[in-house]
Amino acid sequence: MFTLATWNINSVRLREGLVARLLRDEAPDILCLQECKSPVDKIPLAQFRELGYGHVVARGQKGYNGVAILSRLPIEDAGDRDWARLGHARHVAARLENGVTIHNIYVPAGGDIPDRAVNEKFAQKLDFVAEMRDVFHADRPERAIMVGDFNIAPREDDVWSHKQLLKVVSHTPIEVDHLLAAQEAGGWVDITRQDIPEGQLYSWWSYRARDWDAADRGRRLDHVWASPDIAQAGHGSRVLRGVRGWDQPSDHVPVFASFDL
């Protein structure tokens, strides 16, 4: 069995101490980070290695995007893809010794206006997810886990108010349709909702809220999916809501799952 976590850290250099705290307190075997905002050679790995995370694959760029996989288990670099030809560091894959491939993906946020005709960022987001659909349809994943900040909350109970967010980027019908089409194309199973099928569940709370906890206007933007051949091995999902209350936190919190593989 191994335990995996995904977390949009919103600058790994700024929040190195929070990453170290999570590794000490929760000790996942694998931690996938998004929005590292750092070139690979500037990611502060020394403290993570001291904590036992000596295996790393990452893709980075200065100030934006960036994804990294930290592991206590041996992993090998399994490549990356430049989704929608954006030239962004938004994907990296690692392969475990048991042959399971872990994909760490950071889908574009999409800006503020949910109209591709007037908002290039929204168009890029839709194109990114549409390419995911096409790739999974052409090459159906096997023995694969895909995690990350998908920047889409697909279910009505993945947001604080389905009705009020229908025209807000991250929960618009066109985004949800695109994400569900990508999920269906690959046969991906949403492990978090397999384990926690009912009820409101969030992994992100805006910085704009004066009291994020009391307002509780969250969205589930961070996901753990598994290919259908290994989905039944997934269990133990949890969202670490309390991390949002740490000092100088990311606006996202870690999402965990374990796999008996």
Results as ranks from 00 to 15, higher is better:
residue 1 M to H: 10
residue 5 A to V: 13
residue 6 T to D: 07
residue 7 W to A: 09
residue 8 N to R: 11
residue 10 N to L: 11
residue 11 S to H: 10
residue 16 E to C: 13
residue 18 L to W: 00
residue 18 L to Y: 02
residue 24 R to W: 00
residue 26 E to L: 02
residue 27 A to E: 05
residue 28 P to K: 00
residue 28 P to E: 00
residue 30 I to W: 00
residue 33 L to G: 07
residue 36 C to D: 03
residue 38 S to G: 04
residue 40 V to I: 06
residue 41 D to G: 02
residue 44 P to S: 08
residue 45 L to Q: 04
residue 47 Q to K: 14
residue 49 R to H: 04
residue 51 L to H: 06
residue 52 G to H: 03
residue 56 V to Q: 03
residue 56 V to D: 05
residue 57 V to A: 14
residue 63 G to I: 03
residue 64 Y to L: 01
residue 67 V to Y: 00
residue 68 A to Y: 10
residue 72 R to C: 04
residue 73 L to E: 02
residue 76 E to V: 15
residue 87 G to S: 04
residue 88 H to Q: 10
residue 89 A to C: 06
residue 90 R to W: 05
residue 95 R to Q: 14
residue 100 V to K: 10
residue 101 T to E: 15
residue 102 I to D: 12
residue 106 Y to F: 11
residue 107 V to T: 12
residue 109 A to Y: 11
residue 110 G to Q: 05
residue 112 D to G: 07
residue 115 D to S: 09
residue 117 A to L: 02
residue 118 V to P: 00
residue 118 V to N: 01
residue 119 N to V: 01
residue 123 A to F: 04
residue 123 A to I: 12
residue 123 A to W: 08
residue 124 Q to D: 11
residue 124 Q to M: 13
residue 125 K to D: 07
residue 126 L to W: 14
residue 128 F to W: 08
residue 130 A to H: 13
residue 132 M to R: 10
residue 132 M to W: 07
residue 132 M to H: 07
residue 133 R to N: 02
residue 137 H to I: 09
residue 139 D to I: 02
residue 141 P to Q: 01
residue 144 A to T: 10
residue 145 I to K: 05
residue 145 I to Q: 06
residue 146 M to V: 14
residue 147 V to T: 12
residue 153 A to H: 03
residue 153 A to W: 07
residue 153 A to C: 07
residue 156 E to T: 12
residue 156 E to M: 07
residue 157 D to I: 15
residue 158 D to Y: 12
residue 159 V to N: 06
residue 159 V to A: 06
residue 159 V to F: 13
residue 160 W to A: 14
residue 161 S to R: 08
residue 166 L to R: 15
residue 168 V to K: 10
residue 173 P to N: 06
residue 175 E to V: 14
residue 178 H to R: 15
residue 182 A to V: 03
residue 190 D to N: 10
residue 190 D to M: 11
residue 192 T to V: 15
residue 193 R to N: 08
residue 195 D to N: 15
residue 201 L to T: 10
residue 201 L to N: 06
residue 204 W to R: 08
residue 209 A to V: 07
residue 210 R to D: 05
residue 210 R to V: 08
residue 211 D to A: 05
residue 213 D to Y: 06
residue 214 A to Y: 06
residue 221 L to T: 12
residue 221 L to E: 02
residue 223 H to D: 00
residue 223 H to S: 04
residue 224 V to W: 00
residue 225 W to F: 15
residue 225 W to M: 10
residue 232 Q to K: 07
residue 234 G to R: 03
residue 237 S to K: 00
residue 237 S to N: 09
residue 238 R to W: 03
residue 240 L to W: 11
residue 241 R to N: 08
residue 242 G to T: 07
residue 254 P to M: 08
residue 255 V to Q: 09
residue 256 F to L: 15
residue 256 F to M: 13
residue 257 A to N: 08
residue 257 A to V: 09
residue 259 F to D: 14
residue 259 F to E: 13
